[in-house]
């Protein structure tokens, strides 16, 4: 066994990130937007792990820990916002919350 080329790991992270990004852009339902966000964060964590293991260093996993912390904090705040949104507009459509229209 020769092991896995680092590029393959990073490519997987890139694909997942691109998928998350696409979802973020075209979904209107806020639940799906948040899930896409989680996918992107996860892809970023994957990139850290790939790099860390490729160099044989534990820092990658330490950084992943940080990413996961961030994801947890983000999810809690975002879900609270989502509940507020639903409460105010009776919908999860992000286009309805267009108070920033110029």
């Amino acid at each position: 066994m020769n092991g896995i080329p680092m590029e393959h790991g990073l490519a997987l992270a890139a694909v997942l990130f691109a998928l998350g990004l696409a979802g973020l852009m075209f979904r209107r339902n806020m639940v799906f937007v948040l899930m896409s966000l989680e996918v992107m964060l996860n892809a970023a964590g994957l990139a850290f792990i790939v790099a860390g293991t490729a160099w044989g260093q534990p820092e990658g996993q330490a950084m992943f820990l940080l990413v996961i912390t961030l994801a947890a904090a983000e999810a809690s705040v975002a879900l609270a916002l989502l509940i507020q949104l639903y409460h105010r507009f009776k919908t999860l459509d992000t286009d309805k919350a267009s108070g920033m229209r110029g």
């Binding site: 973020l24 852009m25 979904r27 937007v33 992000t94 286009d95 267009s98 920033m100 229209r101 110029g102």
Partner: peptide
Amino acid sequence: VLVRTQTGRLRTYATSMV
């Protein structure tokens, strides 16, 4: 012109950032 780009839609903002 620029005011028109401020649609207030999250998706548009995200798309333009990307």
